[in-house]
Every structure is written in structure tokens, then in C-alpha cells.
Simulated scan of single mutants.
Amino acid sequence: MTYLDDDLGMVTFSLICPECGVANPDDSLNCMVCDRDLTNIVLFLEDDSFDLELTNEHLIEYRKNFWGTDRTGKVNRYPLSEIRNIEYGSPVTRFKFDFNGERKVIPLRKENMEILKDVLPIVIKRNNI
């Protein structure tokens, strides 16, 4: 929703609901379609083979099918307090980290890698993780 009058400002719909995928106003507490609580979402990235949700406590990976059109139902939840040895791959865009003694590698589009690279360290530092 946008207003023509600059004095009223402009409302942006950039808070994506991880549950249903609908864009909500940035200051929404709940999704206007499915009513999911959005207060803990720091970042949501849609990528080719999964979606990533970043909260203050977790990195959540929603797996998609081969074509990237639908979610498979498989969800991997990584507590930020248990993630170690974070690397942002180059020249191939791979987000890598250790979790429960295993090396996890998540391929990301370049623009998503840059966003995650900027936001994740801030969340970790802010929460003293």
C-alpha cells in the first residue's frame, strides 16, 4: 500500500511470512493471511532449493523439491548457539558451518549470500552467541 502524499509516508510490504509466503507490512506482528507470529523473524530468504528463515535463536531451512517450486516438508532447524566455524564461500556461493559435528553446506544465490553475510553476524553478536 502506498500513499501519494509524501507527508503520510510509504508502507512497504517486505516482511515475508515463512509459513505461507505472503508479503506483510514491515511492522506486522502476525501474518495477515495465516496469522503466524512474525515478531521473531529477523530475515527470510527464498532461494532455489530451499527457503531460509533467520530468527534471534535459529537458522531454519525449509527444503524444496528438485524444481524449487514446492516445499517438501523437510525442515532443518539449527540453533545459532550450536553453529560453529561459519564460512561464506567464494568464488562459489556456499554458506558453510559446523553443526553437531557435521559440516553443513548450503548453496545460495549471490544476492542472498550477501544479505546473510551482513545480517547473521549482527544477530549473533546482539544475542551474545
Rank of each mutant, 00 (worst) to 15 (best):
M1D: 14
Y3K: 14
L4D: 07
D6A: 07
D7A: 15
D7V: 13
L8A: 04
M10C: 11
M10W: 01
V11P: 12
V11N: 09
T12Y: 10
S14F: 15
I16H: 06
I16M: 13
C17F: 14
P18R: 03
C20T: 02
C31K: 05
V33I: 11
D35N: 11
R36D: 10
R36Q: 11
D37E: 14
I41R: 04
V42R: 05
L45Q: 10
L45I: 02
E46L: 08
E46Y: 05
S49F: 12
D51K: 10
D51S: 13
E53M: 12
L54M: 09
N56F: 12
F66R: 09
W67E: 04
G68A: 06
D70K: 06
T72D: 11
K74C: 07
V75Q: 15
V75P: 11
R77H: 04
P79Y: 00
L80D: 14
S81I: 01
S81H: 02
E82G: 13
N85G: 14
E87R: 12
S90A: 01
P91Y: 12
T93M: 13
F95H: 02
K96W: 01
K96L: 01
D98L: 06
F99Q: 00
K104F: 02
K104G: 06
L108R: 08
R109L: 14
L116D: 02
K117Q: 05
V123T: 02
N127F: 00
I129Y: 07
I129G: 04
